[in-house]
Design a binder for these strands. Structure first.
Length: 425
RNA sequence: GGAGAGGUGGCCGAGUCGGCUGAAGGCGAUCGCCUGCUAAGCGAUUAAGGGGGUUUUAAGCCUCCUUCGAGGGUUCGAAUCCCUCCCUCUCCGCCA
């Protein structure tokens, strides 16, 4: 959620910032309603103040044994007026919310301006795509031949876009999760969490998952106000909802492995083969709660932490700064990490690292009390995948495949895998 | 799932037959005093949100409103009464 005061006082700047991401924000309407809101507040509060003092006088009169019937009658009328004003006010506030909650975050100044992903800027490239001396196979073929990925049976058990991993495949998935968590907790200083996999609508709204556009992507339980976790960002970022932290508790750096579920309703037809786009996928998430003035640097270190996985796995990748028009709803700045996938003959997103500034914190009401005292301030939140497990799986078997159909296990994973190569049974 | 108890400020914990309790008391925290240092002691301050005013903005200050799990109701007036929901705890049942 954007800062109402800023929308009020810097309307034109905010409008321009939102335009840079292709949003024509109804700020004129917002200003109108905001003005209306304040008028109603003033009116209602005057009447409430009157009622409060009158109530005191009624009590005093009663005590003194005097008759207060006239005053009581008058206050009954005032009470009704107050009720009417409060109802009007609630209507106006709902209209305001409807506008504000649909407004995305404004991009930071160093975000490349452009309408969509074509304006994204590559900022870093590490490693060289390997030149194969043979025709490399896509991971879905390799996986089937090695009998480690079984999409037919995944579909039988659930439906299409669900996968059954077998043998060394299941082991590789688990190895990756453990490797990621061990690195982030052991060397990068994150605390490991394992949150609930079902989350309520309050949490979903807090992180901005339930916008008009996105809500259909989520799996919703029929009989409960619960959703299947769409990304660990949701349960993890919500842990401090409505809390005031102490300044010296910050920064909080946490990591969590969690299965994630998305319907991907609008994406039918894209990435239909293999592990790239699944309804259920594993992800290790990195989340940070930080002091506002540190969030810029925290995004750099968070991104570097995610990149370290790719470096250790010796997978070619690049880092891309997303353009304003390509940013996620709540993000003020995002780096995508893209890994080289031979089957795509291109780089494919494997992590997305974002700085939300106080956008999520405002919605979630996560604040900290400054060490020197003073009013609570909103924290800044950041998060990134570190990494998407299924896509890493795909990248490994494609990039490490051999002409004989085996897959060499990357050095960093060998002790997790207990083998140096994946071979057909 | 069944029975009972309860949800009050950063934390613990009072709140009588509805009115002077936004909330006693304690802890913690901050500032000051005291002390050779530490501890102890003494004093003061210490909820959040939202309006209005003041200030060039912010801070600060003045003032008002709201908030005692959430929502609704009764009343001139509710933390205190009524209804609905949510959550926590204890016992039983069921299980991993």
């Amino acid at each position: 959620m954007l800062d109402i005061k800023k929308l009020r006082s810097q309307t034109e700047e905010m409008k321009a910032a939102l335009e840079s991401r292709g949003i024509d924000a109804p700020l004129d309407e917002f200003i109108e309603l905001d003005k209306k809101r304040r008028e109603l507040i003033v009116d209602a509060e005057e009447k409430k103040a009157l009622r409060n003092t009158a109530s005191d006088r009624i009590a005093a009169a009663r005590k003194a044994g005097e008759d207060a019937a006239g005053m009581i009658e008058e206050m009954r009328r005032v009470g009704e007026e107050i009720k009417a004003l409060d109802h009007l006010l609630r209507d106006v506030e709902m209209q305001l919310d409807a506008i504000v909650l649909e407004l995305p975050n404004t991009p930071l100044p160093d975000v490349p301006v452009g309408p969509d992903e074509s304006a994204n800027v590559e900022v870093l490239r590490v490693g060289e795509p390997r030149s194969f001396g043979f025709q490399p196979k896509p991971h879905w073929d390799l996986g089937a031949e090695l009998d480690i990925i079984d999409q037919e049976r995944g579909g039988k058990v659930a439906e299409s876009r669900f996968t059954l991993l077998k043998g060394a495949g299941a082991r590789l998935e688990r190895a990756l999760i453990n490797f990621f968590l061990d690195l982030h907790t052991g060397e990068h200083g994150y605390t490991e969490l394992f949150p609930p996999i079902l989350v309520n609508s309050e949490s979903m709204k807090g992180t901005g998952q339930l916008t008009k556009f996105a809500q259909h992507e989520m799996y919703k339980l029929r009989d409960d106000d619960l959703y299947l976790n769409p990304t660990a960002e949701v349960p993890v970022t919500n842990i401090f909802r409505d809390e005031i932290l102490k300044e010296d508790e910050l920064p909080v750096h946490v990591t969590a492995y969690l299965p994630s579920f998305r319907r991907e309703a609008g994406a039918a037809g894209r990435d239909t083969r293999g592990l790239i786009r699944q309804h259920q996928f594993n992800k290790v998430e990195l989340v940070k709660f930080v002091l506002p003035e540190t969030s810029t640097g925290e995004l750099e270190s968070l991104t570097a932490n995610a990149e370290e996985i790719l470096r250790r796995l010796e997978l070619p990748f690049r880092r891309v700064a997303l353009a304003s028009g390509d940013l996620g709803f709540a993000s003020a700045k995002t780096y995508d990490l893209e890994v080289w996938l031979p089957s795509y003959d291109d780089y494919k997103e494997i992590s997305s690292c974002s700085n939300y500034l106080d956008f999520q914190a405002r919605r979630l009401n996560v604040r900290y009390r400054p060490a020197g005292g003073g009013r609570p301030q909103f924290v800044h939140t950041l998060n990134g995948s570190g990494l998407a497990v299924g896509r890493t799986f795909a990248a490994i078997i494609e990039n490490y495949q051999n002409e004989d159909g085996t897959v060499t296990v990357p050095e960093a994973l060998r002790h997790y895998m207990g083998m140096d190569a994946i071979r057909p049974l």
